[in-house]
Each structure stands twice: as structure tokens, then as C-alpha cells.
């Protein structure tokens, strides 16, 4: 007899739980990759166009900044519902892992972009100036100075974003994106099977802990120099 069965008698399909885990990881991995792919250039744009920066463009900065702030201030659950038609156009479904990814990315990328902007601002002005004095172009400064010098801060930002995304995927579960959040909501909340609630929360905590640990390791390695 599986000891888990006696511990959580209300959970009758462990396979379903396993699939939910995989769905959560898929949503997390897919959305994190896209969030970084979109948020990183967006953060660089915010940094470069900011006041008295390399390519200061107050109007462009103002507009980008406003869009980022608007997206960040809409609660994720509402963003997800509002975006449903867009999601459908983008990935052909509003449900499941695929349906969850567009709102996750649109919700997290602006957040990550701000973290990127902050991390880049930590790079010493003097180092950028030294590169300019050596005849570096803005593009070379971004690739060879800003991003490498800020990598500890960037990895810290990726870690924070990944953890925020775990929370978002769980919320997404409530409106049909599947994963652990979906189980917790359907069985744990709607059907009063508290076992589901406990197990999914424990799994989410473990996932967050793992992400934090990995992130901290990477950050510490880059901080040493």
C-alpha cells in the first residue's frame, strides 16, 4: 500500500497530480524564457533612453515607461481575462498550458524589464565611459559592458521573476490554464478536498525554494568578482 494514500486518502488520482506538476513546469519554463526574451531588450531600451543616459530619448522613455507601468498595475487575474481574445489569436486556444503563456509573458515581461533597468543602472558610469573612450558603439557597450557587468543583478531579477511566475501560474489555474493551481482550486477549494490543497501548496513551496536556491547560487558566483 502506498504510504501517500494513507496520508492523503482524498487524493484518488496521483497521475493527475503528476501531470499537473508537469503542466506547471511547462508553463513556468515557457513563460520565463519568453519573458526574458522580451523583457531583457525592453529593459535595455528603458535604460538607454532614460534621463542623461547613453541614448536619452525622453519621449520614447515616457511612452515605454507608461505602458510598462500600466501592464504592471493590472492584477494578473484580470489581465488574463482581458487578454483572452488576444491569446486566442496568438496561440489558437484560451486554455491549457499554451493558453496560459501569452498572459503570463505579458504580465511578467514589464516587471522583468524594470528589474533589468534597475540592474543596468547599478553598472558604474565610469566603466561605460571607459568603453566610450575606447571607441565602443552603443551596441558594443550593451553587449560587452552593460550586460556582463550587470549579470549578478540580472540573474537576481530572473529569479524574482521566475518566482512571481509560479504565483501567476497558480492563479491562472482558476480560469482554466491547468497545472497545480487548477487542482488546488478545483479539488481543494471547490470540492473541499483539503488534501489537494496541502499537497499542491507543498509542491509549490518546494518549487519556489528550489528556484530561489539556484538563483542565489548563480548570483553569488557572479558577485564574487
Amino acid at each position: 500500500m502506498n504510504p501517500l494514500h494513507s496520508l492523503f486518502p482524498n487524493i484518488d488520482d496521483w497521475g493527475e497530480l503528476g501531470r499537473a506538476c508537469i503542466d506547471t513546469l511547462l508553463m513556468l519554463g515557457g513563460s520565463l524564457a519568453l519573458t526574458v526574451a522580451i523583457g531583457l531588450p525592453l529593459g535595455v531600451l528603458l535604460y538607454l533612453t532614460g534621463r542623461s543616459q547613453l541614448r536619452a530619448m525622453p519621449k520614447l522613455y515616457g511612452v515605454t515607461s507608461l505602458v510598462v507601468n500600466v501592464l504592471r498595475s493590472v492584477p494578473f487575474i484580470i489581465l488574463m481575462i482581458v487578454l483572452m481574445p488576444v491569446t486566442y489569436v496568438l496561440v489558437g486556444t484560451k486554455l491549457g498550458v499554451r493558453g496560459a503563456i501569452p498572459p503570463l509573458v505579458i504580465g511578467a515581461a514589464p516587471f522583468f524589464a524594470r528589474l533589468v533597468e534597475t540592474a543596468l543602472r547599478e553598472v558604474q558610469q565610469g566603466v561605460i565611459e571607459a568603453a566610450q573612450a575606447m571607441g565602443a558603439s552603443t551596441w558594443q557597450i550593451v553587449c560587452h559592458v552593460l550586460l556582463p557587468e550587470a549579470r549578478a543583478g540580472l540573474w537576481a531579477g530572473i529569479t524574482v521573476t521566475a518566482i512571481a511566475l509560479v504565483g501567476y501560474t497558480a492563479m491562472g489555474g482558476a480560469i482554466g490554464s491547468g497545472g497545480l493551481g487548477d487542482l488546488a482550486y478545483r479539488y481543494g477549494y471547490l470540492s473541499y478536498k483539503s488534501d489537494y490543497m496541502v499537497v499542491t501548496v507543498v509542491l509549490l513551496v518546494v518549487l519556489v525554494q528550489l528556484l530561489q536556491m539556484i538563483g542565489d547560487r548563480i548570483v553569488a558566483r557572479y558577485k564574487r568578482h
Binding site: Q124, G126, V127, A130, Q132, M134, G135, E149
Partner: peptide, 30 residues
């Protein structure tokens, strides 16, 4: 033109993420 003019600074302004050798190689790569 700037490549024909070297510059050193009070606070050195080296790339903290790169080794000494890579710092010196940096202007060559640029």
C-alpha cells in the same frame, strides 16, 4: 579617432566581470 587616444581614470574603471587579460584585450576586440 578615439581608438588613437588612450585614457586612464582615477577609479580605474576596469570591467569587474572580466579577468585582467580580458580587460586588456577589450579595446583590441572592440
Amino acid at each position: 579617432q578615439r581608438r588613437r587616444i588612450g585614457m586612464i581614470f582615477q577609479h580605474f574603471n576596469l570591467l569587474a566581470s572580466q579577468t585582467v587579460a580580458d580587460n586588456v584585450a577589450f579595446p583590441l576586440r572592440l
